[in-house]
């Protein structure tokens, strides 16, 4: 018995040591948790050089993956960059800190009015827009002769094995809902089941399900059609001139990805410095040019020249039926999870 106690004590001590490890190290730092492939690495270096604050940078692939990691972390993150509907959910759950906008003067000065006070954060207390964009179809003009102006192209057996679907719950299900003339935020179980069946029906036509890898595949000509965010389309088109981007007539999603500070962040002031830095026109422009996503800042776009007027990144949004994702109630969210698991388990 004594032996067992000793073992227990030792292992507890070991676990405590492991838990303390991330707290080590000296000096100022800020822990940024962002999407994969979603920042110009030079910008991080510039921030570190100007402020002397060390940036610890981590990445995720989808809003849902970020949420799970955030919920199970021990206040490890200082800046996160989720999308609109995820911000709405985090605000509802009390998971975000109010930003002290006195420390973020560049927000007031440089971010365009139409990107302030969005529906998911109506008083603009918790979020600062990082980029925005649309969801659409990236296609290879050499292989797809007609402009894919309908989501129906993903169900066209002519393109069997040439289609890349997005391995992201809301985007894939939302696309199927839009195709059926429903809302992106459908809660009706019947409509969701129909969307599920639509996607299962499409699965044999898909060459693969990806998030970040879609760029390499499309640039390399591994597939002809893909469901992508406009920002990724901008990057792909810059690398392969045969590619083009289309927004289907059934309408699509418009999204904002905004910088937020999670509740209990250990380096809140540094987080605000980082957010402010990212709103500076020169930094916004440099970053937007690198990642391809659309900047919410006119002063930045002016610095970007032609890239600031690219219709893929900056479409005339009055021409399309664009809808935001909104946060789902718990029951519907679970239903989304259920049908998503069924979709991804079928082939």
């Amino acid at each position: 018995m004594k032996k067992l106690k000793g073992i227990l004590f030792f292992s507890l001590a070991l676990m405590m040591m492991i838990a303390l490890l991330p707290g080590c190290g000296s000096g100022e730092k800020v822990v940024v948790y962002n999407w994969g492939d979603y920042i110009d690495p030079d910008v991080i270096d510039m921030f570190e050089e100007e402020t002397g604050i060390e940036v610890v940078y981590e990445m995720y692939e989808t809003n849902e993956a970020m949420y799970t990691k955030l919920k199970n972390s021990n206040n490890n993150y200082d800046v996160i960059i989720p999308s609109d509907y995820m911000i709405e959910r985090l605000i509802k759950e009390g998971e975000l800190e109010e930003i002290n906008f006195k420390n973020v003067p560049n927000f007031e000065a440089n971010i365009d009015k139409e990107y302030k006070n969005p529906a998911f954060d109506p008083e603009n207390k918790y979020s600062v827009p990082y980029t925005w964009g649309t969801l659409g179809i990236l296609y290879n003009t050499k292989k797809v002769k007609e402009t894919p102006d309908s989501w129906g192209v993903f169900w066209n057996s002519k393109y069997k094995g040439r289609i890349i679907m997005m391995n992201s719950q809301r985007d894939a299900i939302g696309m199927a809902l839009k195709y059926m003339g429903k809302s992106l935020n459908e809660t009706d179980r019947g409509a969701l089941d129909a969307a599920k069946n639509k996607l299962i029906e499409m699965t044999p036509l898909a060459s693969g399900w990806y998030v970040d890898e879609v760029k390499d595949k499309m640039i390399g000509g591994e597939a002809d059609l893909a469901l992508v965010y406009a920002g990724d389309a901008v990057y792909c088109i810059s690398q392969n001139k045969d590619l083009a981007y289309a927004i289907p007539k059934e309408g699509t999603n418009i999204f904002y990805d905004s910088m937020c500070i999670p509740k209990g962040a250990k380096n809140k002031e540094n987080a605000e410095k980082f957010i402010d830095f990212m709103c500076r026109p020169d930094i916004q422009a440099k970053n937007a040019e690198y990642i391809g996503y659309s900047s919410p800042s006119t002063p930045a776009r002016e610095l970007m020249g032609d890239a600031g007027k690219d219709p893929t990144a900056y479409p005339d949004i009055t021409k399309y039926d664009l809808e935001f994702f909104s946060a789902l109630d718990d029951g519907t969210k679970e239903y989304y999870n259920k049908i998503w698991t069924e979709i991804r388990s079928s082939r």
């Binding site: 989808t62 849902e64 993956a65 949420y67 799970t68 990691k69 919920k71 391995n167 719950q169 699965t203 898909a206 060459s207 693969g208 399900w209 990806y210 679970e334 999870n337 998503w340 698991t341 991804r344 388990s345 079928s346 082939r347």
Partner: peptide, 24 residues
Amino acid sequence: GNGKFPLIGDLIQEQYMVVSNWQF
């Protein structure tokens, strides 16, 4: 497998990391 070859490991991984349904 291009992510279109769901195996049991993918299913488990997704339940923990994406869907956060730890029970399933």
